[in-house]
Design a protein around this nucleic acid. Sequence first.
DNA 1: CATGAATGAGTCTTCATTCAT
DNA 2: GATGAATGAAGACTCATTCAT
Lengths: 215, 215, 215, 215
Amino acid sequence: MNPDGDRLPRRRDEARALFRNAILDAAEAVFAERGFHGARIQDIAERARIAVGTVYNHFEQKDDVLSALLEERTEGLLAQLRARAGDPKGFEARLETRMKRLFAYVEQHRAFLAIASEQGLFAGAAAPGARVTPRNAQQIEAFRRELRSIVDEGLASGDIEGLDAEDLARFLGGTMRAFVLSSLAQREAATASPQALATVDLFLHGAARRRRRAR
Amino acid sequence: MNPDGDRLPRRRDEARALFRNAILDAAEAVFAERGFHGARIQDIAERARIAVGTVYNHFEQKDDVLSALLEERTEGLLAQLRARAGDPKGFEARLETRMKRLFAYVEQHRAFLAIASEQGLFAGAAAPGARVTPRNAQQIEAFRRELRSIVDEGLASGDIEGLDAEDLARFLGGTMRAFVLSSLAQREAATASPQALATVDLFLHGAARRRRRAR
Amino acid sequence: MNPDGDRLPRRRDEARALFRNAILDAAEAVFAERGFHGARIQDIAERARIAVGTVYNHFEQKDDVLSALLEERTEGLLAQLRARAGDPKGFEARLETRMKRLFAYVEQHRAFLAIASEQGLFAGAAAPGARVTPRNAQQIEAFRRELRSIVDEGLASGDIEGLDAEDLARFLGGTMRAFVLSSLAQREAATASPQALATVDLFLHGAARRRRRAR
Amino acid sequence: MNPDGDRLPRRRDEARALFRNAILDAAEAVFAERGFHGARIQDIAERARIAVGTVYNHFEQKDDVLSALLEERTEGLLAQLRARAGDPKGFEARLETRMKRLFAYVEQHRAFLAIASEQGLFAGAAAPGARVTPRNAQQIEAFRRELRSIVDEGLASGDIEGLDAEDLARFLGGTMRAFVLSSLAQREAATASPQALATVDLFLHGAARRRRRAR
DNA sequence: CATGAATGAGTCTTCATTCAT
DNA sequence: GATGAATGAAGACTCATTCAT
C-alpha cells in the first residue's frame, strides 16, 4: 500500500467535496430568496465566494445544482422520518418521536422547504415548470412510502383504523404539512416540539374529540 | 333612457371582457403547463388566438396577467367556501356542503391549483420568487379567515374542541389540501364528493376513532 | 354659379384644415418636449384631443407630420427674413429690421426651434438620423440663399467687405444663431429687439472695434 | 517590486480599455450614421466585431454608451481650446493658435460633431429627447466658461471691447460654429487653418471693416 | 482546476400602422 | 371621416454557458 497514492486523491476528493458543499449551501440560500428562475449562477457563485466558472466545474448546468440540492436535503428529511433503533415501541409515542425529529430538521433547513415548496416537492406532484429529476421523484415516492408504512404500522397494531390506507397516509402528510408551514411562517426558528405533538394529536383524534383525555 | 346610448358602450365593454377572459384562460393553461417563468407571452397570445400586442392592451405586464388570474380564481375558490343561504344548519352537514362545493370547483380548475401551488398561494406564505401582489395577499388572508370562522363556529356549537383555534384552522386547511392534491394527482377529473367526505370525517374524528359510527 | 356647390366643399376643406392645424400644433409641442423618437403618435393625438386613427387620415406616416411641421414653420421663419415693401433702404437699418422680425418670430415659436435644432435644420447639414425631406432641404437652401443675398446686397453697396461671400453668409448665420439660442436659453419669452441689435452690431463690426460710435 | 504581480492586472486593464475604446469608436460611427435612436446595439457590436452581450459588459445601457462617448470627445475638444504652455502671448495670435487646434480636432472627429449636434451639445441647451447626463452638462458648461475666459482675456488686454462679456462669448461661439459646420459640410476632410483664420478675423473685425490692414 | 469576460439565443415590451365599426 | 383596439415587427437587455488564461 502506498499511503501517498491514497492521500493525494483523498485530499483532492475532500477539496472537491468542499467546493460542492459551498455551492450547495450558497444555492440553498439564493434559491430560497429569489426562487429558481430568479437566482443567477452569478449570485450563487458570489455567495460561495468563487467564480462562475467554478460552479460549472462541479455541476453541468443550473438545473443540476437544484436537483443535487433537493436530493441531498430530501434525503436528510427522509432520514428523520425513518424509524431508528432506539425509538419507542408504542404507536403514538413512536410517531411522536419521529415527528419531533422531522420538525427539528425543518427548523434547521427552513430555506430548503421554501424551495421544495416552489418545486412542488411535497405537493404530491411536481409543480408546473419544476425541475424535478427522476432521482427526486424517487425520493418523493420514498417519502410517500414512509408515510404509508407508518399508517400500515398503526393499522396493524389497531391504533388507527380506516378504509383506505392511502387516504390515511395523505391525511398524515397534510396534517404534518399544516404544522410545518405554521412553523415556517413564524419569522424565528423555535422549538419544534409543540408542532410535533399537535400533529400527532390531531392526526389521531381529530378536532371533534369529546370526553377524552386532556393533553 | 336612450337604449342606443347604452348599447355601444356596453358592446365595447363586453368585447373587452371577452378578450380579457380569453387571455386569462389561455394564461391559466400555459402557466400550468410551464410555470410562470417558462410561459412566454407569445404562448399565451397564441393560445388565445390573438396578437402579442393585444395582451399588452389588457395587461400592463406579464406579472399582471398572473396576478389577475390568481385574483379571479382565488375569489372563485373562496366563494365556494363561504356559507350560503340554503346551507344546512348542523355543523358537520354544513361543513360537508361547503367542502363538496370547494372540491367541485377544484375539479373545474385543476390548472389553477397547480399555479397557485407554484406561487405558494396555499402555503401560508408566498413562495420564493413568487409574483404575489398585495391584493393576492389579502385574498389568501381572507381564505385563512374563512377557515378560522368555520372553526370558530364549531367551537361555539361545541362540535369541535381544542386549545388553539389557529391550530385547528391550519389543521382543517392541511386536511383539505391533502385531499385536494390527491384529487389533482389523479389524471382524470372525477367526482369530488368522496374527497369532501373524507376531509370532513378525518378532520373531525382523526385516524384513531374506535367504536364510532360506520362509514 | 351654384353657391351651395361651392359652400359645402369649402366647409369640408375648412374642417380638414382645422384638423391638420390641430395636429401640427400638438406635434410641435410634443416633438419639442420629447424629441421626434420619443414622441408617440398617441401623444400627439391626445394633445390634439382626437383619435390616433384621425392623425392617419391627415398624414400618411409619422415622418410626414414632422416634415409638414418643419415645412410650415420654416416657411414662416423665412418669411420674416425676406425683405418687405416698407423696409428701410440703408443696409444696416434694413438688416436690423429683418433681424427684429426674425427674432420676434423665434420668440413666438420657441418649440419649433428646439425641433429644428434636433433635426439639424440650421446646422447647414441634416443631423444624423434626421427626417428631412427633399422639400425641407429646399427650404434650408432657400434660407441659406436669403442670407447670401443679404450679404450680396451689403457687398454691392459697399457696407461690408470680404473675400468670400459664402463665408460671410455663414458668419451672419452663426451670429444670428448665437443670439437665437441665447434667446431660447432664457426660460421666459422676452423682447427680441436687443438680440437683433447685438447680432447686427457684432456682425458688422466684430468684437475689436476701436474708437467707434457708442451704442 | 514584483513585475509579475503587476503584469496580469495591467494586461487585464489594458484588455478592458481596448474593448471599451473599440465600442466607443464603433458607436461614434454608427450614431453619426443613423442617429442615437436609429442605431441598434447590434450595429455597434457588429462594427466593433464583438457580441451584443459584450457591449453590456462595458456599459450598463445604450444611453451610457452615448454619454461616455460624448464625455470622452467633448473633453478632447475642450483640451484643444485651452491655452497651452507654448502658446503665443498676443491676444490675436493666441486666439488663432487655439482655433487652429480646435479646427484640427474637428477634422479628426467629424462624426462626433454630428452626434454632438443632434444632442444639442453646442446648442447652449440640450436638444429635446437628448440623452445628456449631468457630467455632459458640466462639460458644456466648461466649454462655455472657456469661451468666456478667452473673451475676458481680450477685454482685459483691451484687444476687444463691448458691454456684455456673455454676449461676446456667445458671439465667439457662434462664429466658431459657423466655420466648424462649413468645415463639416465639405465631404472631405481638409486643412483646418483657413477656417480658424476666418473665425478669428470675423470675430475681431466683423464684416464691415473699412480701411484696415490687408490680410 | 479556478477564473471571469465573451458570447448570443431568448423574451419582454413598445409603438407605428391598420381596419372594422 | 372619426374612432380606438388589434396587430406584429423590432430592439433593448438578461443570463446560462463557454473557454482562453
